[in-house]
Design a protein around this nucleic acid. Sequence first.
DNA 1: GACCTTTACCCCCATTTGGGGGGATACCAT
DNA 2: ATGGTATCCCCCCAAATGGGGGTAAAGGTC
Lengths: 210, 210
Amino acid sequence: MGFLSIRVAIVEDDKQVRENLAHLIGEAAGFECVATFSSGEEALELWPRRRPDVVVMDINLPGISGVECVRQLKSLAPDIHIVMLTVYDDSDRIFRALEMGASGYLLKRSTTEGILQAIEEVHRGGAPMSSYIARKVVQSFRRQGASDKGVENLSKRETDVLEYISRGYTNKEIAEALGLSAETVRGYLKAVYSKLHVRSRTEAAIKFRR
Amino acid sequence: MGFLSIRVAIVEDDKQVRENLAHLIGEAAGFECVATFSSGEEALELWPRRRPDVVVMDINLPGISGVECVRQLKSLAPDIHIVMLTVYDDSDRIFRALEMGASGYLLKRSTTEGILQAIEEVHRGGAPMSSYIARKVVQSFRRQGASDKGVENLSKRETDVLEYISRGYTNKEIAEALGLSAETVRGYLKAVYSKLHVRSRTEAAIKFRR
DNA sequence: GACCTTTACCCCCATTTGGGGGGATACCAT
DNA sequence: ATGGTATCCCCCCAAATGGGGGTAAAGGTC
């Protein structure tokens, strides 16, 4: 060999699934299972001792969710690559996980080769996912692109209000600054929300500041 | 001479003050008064025809405020330098004006030389202001600096909550993501507000994202 | 003239937020 | 052991926010 194995850790609450995976990875050439955790909390506490390259993370964990565990793990160790484990194409949660820093995902029903390929792919910096989810991701980028353009078809007044929002002003303060009634400011704000497809001033402020 | 005069515009609702200023500037060597406006609205509509280098803007205008006029003027013409005109050291509004893009300010009771010096100074890229306000500005930077450090002495949980806030989540959503009660999230949020010296989630999100 | 957008304001109503209090553990350091 | 900090939860209450309606005048544009 001469090559270092990919050091893999597993976070999965189901003992059966966890041990199957660990065995599968441990047996494969070029892979090493350096840790198994039965909860996100355990993983967040104990991962440093084994320094995994890749973490295979169940998306559906008791206690702390897989998505939240990804967020925290990535903030502790940005270089670790994470593959989410799911039973079905749960696009919403996979989405959140990708947003939080996961690199890809694999289905529990995947073949042995599929699983090892996915781990190897994230380790190379790839992003293993089904074409269905890949399309969802692309659609989301389009949505983001569209909403960036959304900022451009706001009216003058709507932009004025949004600029104040992005500086943390309240409606009352904006009304005073622009010499309008607070109700009017609210009216423009509603238009901004609907055009930017957001539901709160904070989301609007974030989008406005790119 | 051979040198171009500094083209000055005045925005001031008091006719007496406006005409005194216009006369003073028009008479001075190296200065030219290219326009006078009696309101912010008028200035925003008509400034392009006269292309001023420097705008002297009353901070206290009827209708649109001087501060708001600064914001809009600077977004229309970022290269124009603006000096605020105030009766007294109204630190709060001067502050807002500087935040919106004004370069400095001068007091209405200033001497002729003081006024011309201030205009010349902003034109050179300077920032004329009293030492009192200058100290306020410095203090504000300290406050900002301190609050940037403030982010660092948030506890783990407080940081968790703030991170979700900066992604536009509601308290309820954060509670669900972190497996906490919504009341608990509120509790952490209160701590975040007091440590960052902000009063709303949007302000907190802005500070968190630098 | 008919149409659209923009500006500006109003109503109701449920939910969320923010400010002010509490508590109860637990752990850590002096 | 005693104080400090962090974690987690609860109460009350006023204000702000967001979603759903609506009106009316002013300005383009086709």
